[in-house]
């Protein structure tokens, strides 16, 4: 299975997620779970097929990480839905998934089969999957932050609670991704932390979310500042994920440049 057949899985999965999102507005729980999970299963079947035909986990190129992002958006969406019952969350996660599906359809990257020896490690899959999952959750938190900044009415504590929890769970996975990376780097490169540009930006991202968590724990009533911290942190995250590929300070230096 390759990128040529991607569209035949992406469209049915997307339709399922749309139906799930639609029934969330109608308040029909059974259909919400049924369609969303079916879409997730269809999408995962494609990832699995890619995995088998590439003979390695599809986690190396930017296109492949976007594939996981589109997969984890509805996963994160359905988890949030089952916990807090937000009607809109599945519409949002479906839209986000669609964006990444479209990027992969219209601007696919070079998809090569080779995987260099440094990436052949049992740490590879957990390191990247955990990171992408945290990106999905922190993406949702960033949307909540925008919502807080744009909305005229007073922000309820329920909404602030959701934002906090998205950041907590997202940061947990971010911490896992970073520390798994450190443990792996020790096995592959001989040192767990070398201030490589990608590592520097991973530290920046992590500290930015730590700033948010501490700011909120300090019982700050200022929701606007909190929302701005989330947005700034999310920009740092983008920098870490793909921004450094365009950054003069990281060009040709980062040992993380694989694509």
């Amino acid at each position: 299975m390759g990128w040529n057949s991607f569209i035949w899985f992406a469209i049915p999965a997307f339709i399922c997620w749309c139906l799930g999102a639609f029934f969330a507005w109608k308040g029909k729980k059974a259909q919400v779970y049924g369609f969303t999970l079916l879409g997730i299963a269809v999408f995962f079947y494609f990832i699995l097929g890619m995995w088998i035909s590439l003979e390695r986990p599809p986690l190396r190129t930017m296109g492949e990480t976007r594939l996981w992002y589109s997969f984890f958006m509805p996963v994160a969406g359905i988890i949030v839905y089952s916990r807090w019952r937000y009607k809109w969350i599945l519409s949002f996660s479906t839209m986000m998934a669609l964006v990444f599906i479209c990027v992969n359809l219209f601007k696919p990257e070079i998809h090569s089969k080779t995987l260099m020896p440094a990436l052949q490690s049992p740490w590879f899959a957990p390191h990247v999957i955990v990171y992408i999952f945290s990106y999905a959750l922190l993406g949702a938190a960033a949307v909540m932050a925008l919502f807080i900044l744009i909305r005229k009415e007073k922000i309820t504590s329920k909404e602030m609670n959701l934002t906090d929890n998205l950041v907590y769970v997202g940061t947990t996975f971010l911490t896992f991704g970073m520390l798994f990376g450190a443990l792996w780097a020790k096995e592959a490169w001989g040192h767990y932390w070398a201030w490589d540009p990608k590592e520097t930006w991973a530290a920046v991202t992590w500290m930015a979310y730590m700033l948010y968590i501490h700011y909120r724990k300090a019982d700050s009533k200022d929701m606007q500042t909190a929302a701005w911290i989330i947005l700034a942190a999310f920009i740092c995250l983008q920098m870490c994920w793909w921004g450094i590929n365009y950054l003069p300070s990281a060009k040709g230096i980062s040992i993380h440049s694989y694509n």
Partner: peptide
Amino acid sequence: HIQAAIPSIAYALGLTIIMGLTVQ
């Protein structure tokens, strides 16, 4: 107290961003 932690994280963050933006 947590009020002391916030500025220390903010400063460390700022300096690390500068580090990320400059060639080391």
